[in-house]
Design a protein around this nucleic acid. Structure first.
Lengths: 197, 197
DNA sequence: GGCGATTATATACAGTGTATATTTGACCGG
DNA sequence: CCGGTCAAATATACACTGTATATAATCGCC
């Protein structure tokens, strides 16, 4: 708060004339950047809409690296975020999903976007340094204790694998799975098997 | 640190005789609870192994709610976590995946587990209170501004949908997608379409 | 120009992690 | 039993959080 106030040339306490507390400030910031998410429209291919939303969300997260940690530790639905959810659910229900299904789909996609990006942002070494890092830490990955990790590290050192994971890999698995699911007439038996717990 | 030390009946600073700093302490704690994850074996059905690992991971997260926020803000691979990764990659590569593919698969599944559980833990109202919450906030969700969210809230109020999302929904989509993918002989063209960005 | 409301400030407090220096206490060879 | 050694516990202090409270400055308006 002091640092932010300093950037405005004022003291920390004067911020509290415009904002109730730090939490409210963060909510306002989150709603601001949420506007950068590409919201789906009710017409058009839902797969492509979901795809564009997910990618734009991830790009936003990468642009504003402070967002994901705050987003998962704080949910206060401002207008912008509400509009995004409304548009997403709307796109899905107008394409044949029930409201419950739309909720599950949105939740599954968001889980991937959040989880993937958090891992990505948290990873301590940049992709360009993967190979050097693998070479450096290879001696510490005992080939007897961790044979597969050792082999994986060797692949990265040798250049057989660049070590870069793909955001689209999981996203497309989800989208294709949803498409298959939707195309089956008897959904009751083709629902992804739910498991308790 | 003072609180933890107090629980031991000592002062905060004495902890620093056993631990370099708070970060190291957290790493030790994370590695401790990581032992509760069911690690895959190299034999057996990989889908079932991945499924059990994912579910046990989520259950561990729910048991120790402090874990997910720390796990995504800090990665220091202790022995237990290394063993989990090694076993997971090992199970996949011995079932026909390349090392690169195994990395993508593990990453996709972990993304779902992290993202889903973080959303779940962060959600401010308990499932048992969804219906009441929907009824309470319904007036604030304008049916003209947010028609679909309004309709969704009505479904929860009426009991047509209980509002509970399913961890397995996204997980099974991923696992089925992977199975389909693996069963296709010509993988080159059946790879989930990668997209840049 | 003065009044009322908005905005800025000064000061203070309870927290946080931890650096530094000092004291305690347990063990051990003589 | 005695002193020496060394790990473990403590005391104190510092910089840094967010923010409660009380006071002062500033602005718009009649």
């Amino acid at each position: 708060m002091r640092r932010l106030a300093g950037a405005f040339g004022v003291t920390a306490m004067s911020l509290y004339n415009h904002v109730a507390n730090k939490n409210e400030l963060i909510d306002l910031m989150l709603n601001q950047v949420a506007a950068e998410i590409e919201i789906p429209s009710v017409d058009g291919q839902w797969q492509e809409m979901m795809r564009r939303r997910a990618h734009s969300m991830r790009r936003m997260f990468l642009r504003h690296r402070w967002v994901p940690p705050l987003l998962i530790s704080q949910i206060t639905l401002g207008q912008v975020i509400l509009r995004d959810i409304d548009a997403t659910v709307g796109c899905l229900v107008t394409n044949g999903f029930s409201y419950a299904e739309a909720d599950w789909v949105r939740n599954a996609i968001d889980s991937h976007v959040y989880g993937y990006t958090l891992q990505e942002l948290n990873f301590p070494v940049e992709p360009s340094a993967y190979r050097d890092a693998a070479a450096t830490y290879l001696p510490e990955i005992s080939s007897s204790d961790y044979p597969f990790m050792h082999a994986a590290a060797l692949q990265i050192v040798s250049g057989a694998y660049d070590g870069v994971t793909d955001f689209s890999f999981g996203l497309e698995l989800l989208l294709e799975g949803l498409e298959n699911w939707q195309h089956q007439t008897n959904r009751q038996t083709s629902v992804p098997r739910p498991r308790s717990g």
